[in-house]
Design a binder for these strands. Structure first.
Lengths: 234, 234
DNA sequence: GCAAAAGTGTTCGGATTACACCCATGT
DNA sequence: ACATGGGTGTAATCCGAACACTTTTGC
């Protein structure tokens, strides 16, 4: 079969916006770039798509090589292709965003890269258009989490409802009514109560819950209203 | 500045899922592919991204060359990069979807391509992964239209509420209550009533409305509930 | 006993639905 | 006059938000 002639070929990269939550604030995993150009500057974790590799395989490979984690929530975000985005040569990038349980991650950190969790509130300048990618990811997470239960991906296997509420509150930067929040979440039937309590924040202690994985898979695409007044917030 | 070495370069295409509505059903604009491979088969309108071209410029160029229309609603859908998607050589594709007013289009049809509007219900086989792109676009439109007023892009400048309802009904494949639908739509304040009536479907005639463009721009990102029971429908 | 956080119950108002009714007009 | 589709009104219902109250337990 003939080849297509006279068409410009380009380098194709995948960049990962890796987001975590430490119980108080949202974090982004960035690395110190190890090669020119922009060597030593902060950057998203990324890499070139290989000859026989799909985008999602590339994204998973990149995520694994940095965090050692597999089976992470990973979703294609947007493709970036401005001709000037990489000054060296024409490189397009398919951005993915990943939601990881930060406690899992810390155990398995790869030392090959100089990686750091930075607060999403107070990010340094990243190379190229990486800040734009992060902004897009934040927007997308906010948007999607208003209707779909994706934020559970950021929490450990067992978590309390107040922890979950903290997460939502730090994403939307508002405070919700404790009582309504808990009822709303429980009404989704996505959570299973365990016998254990977390007493680190109160004398009474808050029950730990875990995800009902079956129902989670079912409801993943449904429209769940978890936050109040989404219109005002987003 | 040095170049990145030993990395695979790829061809980069943009494919457009161009959707219209003829008053009764949803249509997709496809062309008979003019070159090998798969010459003569149905295909989305697409083309290679040029040396100094961004994705959105490429998508607009492609859309313009086929329809002669500018300023069309156009949004990036997804990037496709499976190594086997194009048998000739590694080509990735950034898919866009476009919503066009089919009546506008018909006046300005370009004769350079053998283009045809096919019913979305009953699509022919398209080349490569183009059917997947169409499915994704349909899903995305359904999803997005449940919360955002994008479907107006498919209608002429002046349209009646029953026409709008037909559009929603053909997308969601359900019937809505006439009376509640009209009130819901009007409550968004996005429509301005004109003096004219469309009498083609009834003796009484239905008022033509036009979009309030200012409010449309404002409300475009808001969560508007237009369809009832979105959970059951999507 | 008290403070502090977790969890349950109740009320209120607005939105949504379902459905009855009126309107305009070409035949 | 009457059939047909367009449009308005209204009662019943549901759901979310607001907020009072109870529960638990370490100090």
């Amino acid at each position: 079969m003939n080849k297509y002639e006279n068409q410009t070929k380009m380098l194709v990269a995948v960049d990962c916006v890796i987001v975590g939550f430490n119980g108080t604030e949202m974090k982004l995993l960035v690395i110190k770039r190890g090669f020119e150009p922009e060597k030593g500057k902060w950057s998203l974790m990324g890499g070139f798509v290989q000859e026989n590799e799909s985008f999602s395989r590339a994204a998973n490979r990149i995520l694994y090589s940095l965090t050692g984690l597999r089976g992470i929530y990973l979703e294609q975000l947007h493709a970036y292709g401005n001709p000037e985005r990489d000054p060296v040569e024409r490189t397009i990038s398919v951005a993915y965003f990943a939601l990881v349980d930060i406690t899992q991650y810390e155990r398995q950190l790869s030392k090959d890269y100089k990686a750091e969790w930075k607060s999403l509130k107070n990010l340094p300048d990243l190379i190229f258009d990486h800040n734009r990618m992060v902004d897009k990811a934040r927007q997308e997470i906010k948007y999607k989490a208003a209707n779909h239960p994706i934020l559970f991906e950021l929490l450990p296997d067992k978590f309390t409802i107040p922890q979950l509420q903290n997460l939502y509150e730090s994403i939307y930067e508002v405070e919700f009514d404790r009582r309504n929040f808990s009822r709303k979440v429980l009404s989704t039937k996505l959570l299973i109560k365990t016998a254990e309590k977390d007493k680190s924040n109160s004398k009474k202690g808050a029950y730990y819950y875990k995800l009902d994985n079956e129902r989670y898979a079912e409801k993943f695409r449904a429209f769940l209203s978890i936050i109040p007044n989404p219109d005002k917030i987003i």
